[in-house]
Amino acid sequence: MLAAARERAGLAQRQASVAAGLVPSYVGLIEHGRRTPSLAAAQRLAEVLDLTDGERTQLYAAAVTDAGRSHPSRAEGRGRA
């Protein structure tokens, strides 16, 4: 869905990534289902790509609020405080 919305917006992957303040490879991984976007990234992409309400709902439902290796819950899972 994300790639189709990006193409509909007339943007290359790199253009959409830069406009959203994201790394192009990250957006590519999201488009191919290899990464789950953070909620912040999903919101940025939704704005840049002018997603429909239904597309936004779908993207936000797939997003995670605790993305990132430095998140405390991930550190605890590896035995770190």
Rank of each mutant, 00 (worst) to 15 (best):
E55W: 11
L45N: 09
G28M: 04
E47L: 01
L29I: 06
Q43I: 06
L39P: 02
R56Q: 08
Y60E: 00
L39A: 15
Q15I: 05
R44V: 05
Y60M: 02
A67M: 04
E55L: 09
A41K: 00
A63R: 02
P72I: 02
T65M: 07
L49D: 10
T52I: 07
G79H: 12
A67D: 05
H32Y: 09
G21H: 07
A16K: 01
S70E: 14
T57A: 13
G77Y: 07
R35E: 08
A40K: 06
G21A: 07
L51S: 05
Q58T: 13
R74V: 12
Q58K: 05
R44S: 11
G77Q: 15
L45A: 12
L45E: 12
H71S: 00
A46Q: 05
S70L: 13
T57G: 09
S70N: 14
T36D: 08
G68I: 06
S25L: 05
S17I: 00
A40I: 03
E31W: 09
V48R: 09
A40Q: 11
V48I: 13
V27I: 14
A46N: 10
A63I: 02
D50G: 07
R44K: 15
A16W: 03
A67E: 07
P72V: 00
R69G: 14
L39I: 12
Y26F: 15
L22R: 07
S38Q: 00
R35V: 04
P72F: 00
R35G: 02
S38H: 00
T36I: 14
G54M: 09
R69E: 08
A41V: 01
G54C: 06
Y60C: 00
Y60R: 02
D50C: 11
G77R: 13
D53L: 02
L29K: 09
R80A: 14
H71T: 00
A61T: 04
L51R: 04
S38K: 00
E76R: 14
E47A: 05
D66T: 15
P24W: 09
G33N: 05
V48H: 09
H71I: 00
S70I: 12
S25N: 12
A20W: 08
P37L: 02
R56L: 07
V23S: 09
R74D: 05
A75V: 12
A67W: 01
T52G: 00
S73F: 07
R78F: 15
T52W: 06
R56P: 03
A75M: 15
T57Q: 13
R80P: 04
L39E: 15
R78I: 13
L59K: 01
A19M: 14
R69V: 12
A46G: 10
G54Q: 14
A20F: 13
G54A: 11
R56W: 11
R44N: 14
R56K: 13
L59T: 06
T36M: 11
E47W: 03
A40F: 04
R69P: 06
V18D: 07
A61L: 08
D53S: 04
E47F: 01
A62L: 12
V48G: 07
S38W: 00
R74H: 14
Q15T: 11
A19C: 13
L22H: 08
R44A: 14
G68T: 02
Q43S: 07
Q15W: 12
P72Y: 01
Y26M: 09
A42N: 01
A16Y: 05
A75L: 15
